[in-house]
């Protein structure tokens, strides 16, 4: 048993052309999926991240201190749009949950990472 993070890679532009009916359908599918796994105790949390590039800070040249810039994603289409936290036996079980997520069903990638524990 472990805790996993589902990182939803996203490009907000993919959604720009969705119709009203399609958007409503997507919401309904998320509702079904999250209700199912929340009730079974597998889905424990998650947040949507803002659809902006964010910020990144890194150390600059020696003596220059920290440099703050737009996030690493500003130039690419790939943004982490949000994440879910789940509990699963192993990667295979986590994959099974992620596979049914509407995000994956719509052909967008979900990155699955196990959270490191103390022991």
């Amino acid at each position: 048993m472990g805790q996993f993070m589902l990182l939803l890679h996203d490009d907000a532009k993919d959604d720009a052309e969705l119709s009203a009916a399609e958007m409503q359908d997507i919401i309904a599918r998320y509702r079904t999926w999250s209700q199912k796994w929340r009730e079974s105790g597998h889905l424990t949390g998650g947040e949507k991240l803002m659809d902006d590039p964010g910020r990144i800070i890194r150390s600059g040249a020696p003596g220059q201190g920290m440099i703050v810039s737009d996030g690493p994603y500003s130039e690419t289409k790939d943004v982490i749009g949000g994440y879910f936290l789940i509990i699963a036996d192993d990667y295979a079980a986590a994959e099974a949950i992620a596979r049914g997520c509407p995000h994956a069903e719509r052909g967008k990638p979900i990155e699955i990472r196990q959270i490191q524990t103390m022991d």
Binding site: A12, D15, A16, L18, A20, M23, I26, I27, Y30, R31, S34, G46, E47, K48, D51, G81, G82, P102
Partner: peptide, 17 residues
Amino acid sequence: VQESLLRACRTWPWKGI
């Protein structure tokens, strides 16, 4: 109108309806 619907589509899955 499209942007309003889109924002719902992008937040309700997390925050609930």
